[in-house]
Each structure stands twice: as structure tokens, then as C-alpha cells.
């Protein structure tokens, strides 16, 4: 994962609530066996509507998406995060995110910023004409109009994003602890350790 420190630029002033991952990337795009090229399918249904923000020249290639409550709800498909990356989105700002989407976004180095509804509304307004800047180190979102909003982020996620850490590699460093747990499990709950009955 590439380190993330700042994301600055134009932002799609989207703002719709309950946007599910079927909307972000419809199921027929999920037949791929790679992570690439999904930007073409991103928001496919919404892009058929006249005046949609995704085809508006002002926001073309914007690195930020300002979204509504419960963004990324529904299916666990990580293709939604891959599609956003492929269309150039590096950060999403919303009043709330679905738990699975926010985890998927994080694993792919997309910054998810949670702000109260009224601040998100303000950013939707600002985004029509101006750029937005997100600074992960100081946990702030700023605009050219001197708006300055602070956001919370899990310290572990923040550190991983800033350093671009490979989480699997990180966990593999706990190999001994996992091995110890497995030994205990085999003794205390042998029926769980049995699994499908194949040798490990």
C-alpha cells in the first residue's frame, strides 16, 4: 500500500445517502479476476442520468468524493474500493460509512473521513467551485474559505496509512502468538480445531 499523507483537489459534490456498493460497482463487473479497470463501471447507473456529478467536467479526475450517510452499504465487494481507486478517488468524506466498506477502503489506501452532516453539507457546497484539502497527520479538512474541520481516525489505521504498511506482513510477525493460540484451541475446543478434517 502507498503511504497517504494529504489529499487535495477538486471533490465530487455527491452527498446522496445510503449509496450501496451495487451502485458503486454493479454485479456484472464482479466477474473479473483482477483488481484493475473497474473505474469504467463505477456509478454506471447514475452516469446514465443527465447532469450527474461524475461526468461533469468541473470534477473530472477529482481525488475526493463528498458522499452521504451510510456510504458503501450492502455487499462486501472490495471491487467498490478498487473502482474508486481506478477512477482516481483517494479519499471519501461522509457522515458515516458502512463498516465493511470503510475497512475495504482502508486496505486499499483510500482515506475515509467521517464528519457531521452539517459539515458535509458545507463541503458539498464548497466543492461546486473550490478545492478541498485533507491532511491526515493533523486530521483536518480545510477549504479556501477558511473552513477547518477536525476528524477522528483510528490510530492504528492512521499509522498504517501514513507508513503504507502491508497488514498481512505485519500480522505474520505475530506468527508465534497465532501458533500458541492454535495449540490452546486444539486442547480446549478440539471440535473447533477439527475443521473439514483435512490435515493442515
Amino acid at each position: 500500500m502507498e503511504p497517504v499523507r494529504q489529499v487535495e483537489g477538486r471533490a465530487y459534490p455527491f452527498g446522496q445517502k445510503n449509496i450501496d456498493t451495487d451502485i458503486i460497482i454493479p454485479a456484472h463487473w464482479l466477474k473479473t479476476i483482477t483488481r484493475e479497470g473497474l473505474g469504467q463501471g463505477a456509478f454506471e447507473v447514475l452516469r446514465k442520468e443527465d447532469g450527474n456529478v461524475f461526468d461533469d467536467e468541473r470534477y473530472a479526475g477529482a481525488p475526493i468524493l463528498v458522499a452521504g450517510d451510510n456510504f458503501g452499504c450492502g455487499s462486501s465487494r472490495e471491487h467498490a474500493a478498487w473502482a474508486l481507486i481506478d477512477m482516481g478517488v483517494k479519499a471519501v468524506i461522509a457522515p458515516s460509512f458502512s463498516d465493511i466498506f470503510s475497512s475495504n477502503a482502508f486496505k486499499n489506501g483510500i482515506l475515509t473521513v467521517v464528519l457531521p452532516q452539517e459539515q458535509v453539507d458545507r463541503l458539498v457546497e464548497v466543492a461546486q467551485t473550490e478545492t478541498i484539502a485533507i491532511d491526515l497527520e493533523s486530521q483536518t479538512v480545510t477549504t479556501p474559505f477558511q473552513d477547518r474541520f477536525s476528524f477522528e481516525i483510528d490510530p492504528f489505521r492512521k499509522a498504517c496509512l501514513l507508513d503504507g504498511l502491508d497488514e498481512v506482513g505485519l500480522t505474520m510477525a505475530s506468527d508465534a502468538a497465532i501458533g500458541k493460540y492454535e495449540m490452546q484451541l486444539a486442547a480446549s475446543r478440539p471440535w473447533m480445531a477439527r475443521g473439514t478434517g483435512l490435515a493442515a
Binding site: 462486501s76 472490495e78 465493511i100
Partner: peptide, 23 residues
């Protein structure tokens, strides 16, 4: 029981664990 993304599928395949915060 809960759903996970593909990066987490990889994490579980490799380590049989997940890094989580309690809900």
C-alpha cells in the same frame, strides 16, 4: 459471523486471523 472484503480474505488465508476493534 461477518462479511469481509477481498484484502481480508487474503489476510485470513495467510494468517487465520483478522485485525479488528470490538464493535
Amino acid at each position: 459471523a461477518f462479511g469481509i472484503g477481498t484484502s481480508e480474505v487474503e489476510h485470513v488465508l495467510a494468517t487465520q486471523t483478522l485485525l479488528l476493534k470490538r464493535s
